[in-house]
């Protein structure tokens, strides 16, 4: 069991300090208040919550962008030294992230080929020819082609850019991919394609996903395990079926009730309610 754990987070916390002004004291904001979970290799954990619940901060800690205030982070069974400057190159390569906004996550002045080749150029002694080969291979894997190698990000649609961002994250063969709302900026039809791509890649590379989202229908589709966050705390954590069939926490139930439903029965019920209200009036 333990050797199959890809990621373990133990009581991780993150505080932000709001610098005080001349007349107001410093304020400390607890963005993440002690979250723990374990995630098996090849599985997907979805972290659900509304804006400001700390889910993105958690994602940034797992990807070593931000340093946790306290708590442990174990990847592949090894404890990670998250202090800046202490991170080994090997660790860094194991975890990669895909950001929410495909328009901000690609350098507008960098050709796609260079976007994909950059991690290789920095971390390996690969020749330019080899880098090009690897980049083209990865482009094919994410559903693009070698003809896209020399183009700039602005020539792509949002969905294609997200594919490129995924390709970049995969260039160093990571084991854990943190997906921070990867489809919430995308159109419905494109969202389906990107979700399918993520599923394909997970099968092919045996990737472990931490999937941050606010969209319950997407989470229900993609997740093995679900964690609901509310004001920095994990209020609900369990397998997908447990959480969706029997939510324990009040907030989770509110969240489910608030999600718009697009099935025919609920539309019928709504129209019936409306007609009834009209009849009364």
């Amino acid at each position: 069991m333990t050797e199959n754990t890809m990621l373990e987070v133990r009581d991780i916390k993150r505080d932000y300090e709001l610098p005080g002004g001349l007349f107001k004291p410093k304020k400390i904001i607890h963005a993440v208040k002690g979250v723990s979970f374990k995630l098996e290799r090849g599985k997907t954990l979805a972290i659900v919550g509304e804006s400001g619940c700390g889910k993105s901060t958690l994602a940034r800690m797992i990807t070593f962008i931000d340093e946790p205030t306290s708590g442990d982070l174990l990847i592949d069974g090894k404890k990670v030294d998250t202090r800046p400057g202490h991170l080994t190159q090997e660790m860094r390569q194991k975890v990669q992230i895909v950001f929410q906004n495909p328009y901000g996550s690609l350098n507008p002045r960098q050709k796609i080929g260079d976007v994909l080749g950059e991690p290789l150029a920095i971390n390996t002694g690969m020749s330019a020819e080899e880098r090009r080969h690897r980049a083209n291979e990865m482009l094919k894997k994410v559903g693009l082609g070698p003809e896209h190698y020399n183009r700039y990000p602005h020539m792509f649609s949002g969905g294609q850019r997200q594919r490129i961002a995924i390709a970049r994250a995969l260039m160093m063969n990571p084991k854990l991919l943190v997906l921070d709302e990867p489809v919430s900026a995308l159109d419905l039809s494109v969202q389906a394609q990107v979700l399918n791509l993520l599923a394909d890649l997970q099968d092919e590379f045996g990737l472990t996903y931490v999937f941050i989202s606010h969209d319950l229908s997407v989470v229900r589709y993609i997740a093995d395990e679900v964690m609901v966050m509310y004001f920095g705390e994990a209020v609900e954590y369990g397998t997908r079926d447990e959480v969706f069939s029997d939510p324990k926490h009040e907030y989770t139930r509110t969240l489910f009730a608030a999600t718009p439903r697009a099935d025919i029965e609920s539309i019928r019920a709504r129209i019936a309610r409306k007609n009834a209200a009209k009849a009364v009036a």
Partner: peptide
């Protein structure tokens, strides 16, 4: 519209909703 969409595009859109996923992959619009 939800029960019996006429245009292919609407059909595709509805099929792409994650809650309407049938297998382990979503139906894409294309």
């Amino acid at each position: 519209l939800f029960e019996s969409p006429k245009s292919n595009y609407t059909k595709a859109l509805l099929a792409a909703l994650p809650e309407n996923a049938t297998g382990d992959r979503l139906t894409t619009v294309s």
